[in-house]
Amino acid sequence: MANMTPEEVKHHIKTYVMVFVALAFLTVVTVGISYLDLGVTGGIVLALIVASIKGSLVACYFMHLIDEKITIYWTLLATVAMFLVLLFLPLSTSLAQTQV
């Protein structure tokens, strides 16, 4: 991001505004969904999908991950892997426990 021409920056600003509109819209969507009766599982899945889309928009455009350097990608790849391990491996042990 260090060497951008003013035109490029202006182009970026347009993107930011569009992303903002999308985020606001998705917030309304996710609140709306929660008032529908989708059952617990359906509700969780849908809400997490919407949240993931919003999160990706913020990360990709506001944080410029869409065109970042390879070092950052590697770092985040390792982090995401460990994050998923942390989220689901403890869960798997407790689920296995209740089945016994």
Binding site: T30, I33, S34, G43, A51, K54, G55
Partner: peptide, 11 residues
């Protein structure tokens, strides 16, 4: 916050 919001308030 984008993740906290649905996880705590909506689910």
């Amino acid at each position: 916050w984008i993740f906290l919001f649905p996880v705590l308030y909506l689910l």
